[in-house]
C-alpha cells in the first residue's frame, strides 16, 4: 500500500503554504516535523481530501483522494476540534461511526473496544463537556481509529496529553503502524524519537529532508535543528 503525493501545491492569498511537494508514504510510522506555520496542517488537510490543492495529486494505490473509497480507509485527527454539546464520549464515537459508514453492530463493538484502548472507560457515559484536555484528545484519537483505517493521519496528536498518556499513545501507534500508513505531525521532536520509522522535515512549505530514522543514529533533536539551520 502506497500513498503518493505528486507535486502538490497550495497557495493562500499572499503565502505559499505547500510548495510542489512530492513524496511516497509506505507502511510504517512517518513523522512530519516542522515549526508552527511550516505548512504541516495544510499538507495534512490535503492528504485527507479536506483541502483541494491548487496543483498536483494525491493517490493511494491508484485511488484519488477525493473519493468515497479513499475516505473509507482514512482516519484523521485534526489539530483543533470540537464536539456537539449534548454528546457523551460514547455518543461521540457512535456518531463518528455512523458518518464513517459503520454498521450498527460494528459501531457498538468498535466503540466499546476503543473506549477501553484509550482509557476512557469510566468517563464514556459522561458529557464530553466535562472532559479534561487530555481526555478530549484521547477521544479524538479513538474516533480516528474507529473505522480501522489503513491510512492514519494525525495532526499534533500528543497535544494536551500528560507524560504517561504520551507513552501509552506511542505504544498504541507503534502497534498500529506495523501494517498501516501512519503520518504524525508534531513540533515536539521527542514525541517521534522512538516510534517514527521515517521522517519528513518541512520548512516554509517545502520538504527539507526525508529518510529513514533509527534510534541509533544519534540525537533526533540535534539532527532536526541542524537540518533546519542548514537551509536558512
Amino acid at each position: 500500500m502506497e500513498l503518493t503525493a505528486d507535486r502538490i501545491t497550495k497557495q493562500y492569498k499572499n503565502k505559499i503554504a505547500v510548495d510542489r511537494m512530492s513524496f511516497t508514504l509506505t507502511k510504517g510510522v512517518t513523522g512530519l516535523l516542522g515549526a508552527n506555520g511550516a505548512g504541516k496542517t495544510t499538507l495534512m488537510r490535503i492528504l485527507c481530501g479536506i483541502l483541494v490543492p491548487d496543483g498536483g495529486t494525491v493517490t493511494c494505490d491508484g485511488m484519488d483522494v477525493e473519493t468515497e473509497e479513499y475516505r473509507e480507509i482514512l482516519g484523521y485527527l485534526p489539530q483543533e476540534f470540537g464536539y456537539y454539546p449534548e454528546f457523551t464520549g460514547r455518543d461521540f464515537l457512535l456518531y463518528m461511526s455512523a458518518v464513517k459508514g459503520l454498521q450498527k453492530a460494528d459501531a457498538l463493538k468498535k466503540t466499546e473496544e476503543l473506549i477501553e484502548v484509550v482509557g476512557l472507560k469510566d468517563a464514556a457515559r459522561k458529557r464530553v463537556r466535562t472532559y479534561s484536555g487530555g481526555m478530549k484528545q484521547r477521544l479524538g484519537i479513538a474516533q480516528a481509529l474507529i473505522n480501522d483505517p489503513q491510512i492514519l493521519i494525525m495532526d499534533e496528536p500528543t497535544a494536551g496529553l500528560d507524560p504517561q498518556e504520551r507513552i501509552r499513545f506511542r505504544n498504541l501507534i507503534a502497534n498500529i503502524g506495523k501494517d498501516r500508513i501512519v503520518l504524525l505531525s508534531t513540533h515536539i521532536v521527542s514525541d517521534l524519537e522512538h516510534i517514527a520509522d521515517k521522517l519528513m522535515i518541512m520548512k516554509e512549505g517545502r520538504l527539507l529532508w526525508q529518510g529513514e530514522w533509527n534510534t541509533g543514529a544519534g540525537d533526533l533533536e540535534e539532527f532536526y535543528i541542524s537540518r533546519i539551520g542548514d537551509n536558512r
Binding site: M1, D61, G62, M63, T67, E68, E69, E72, I73, Q150
Partner: peptide, 18 residues
C-alpha cells in the same frame, strides 16, 4: 487483495490489470 480499492468493478479490474 492486500490493498483496498474502488468499489466500482471496472476500476477494480483496471487496478488488477495494472
Amino acid at each position: 487483495l492486500g490493498s483496498r480499492t474502488y468499489r466500482d468493478e471496472n476500476r477494480q479490474l483496471q487496478y488488477l490489470y495494472t
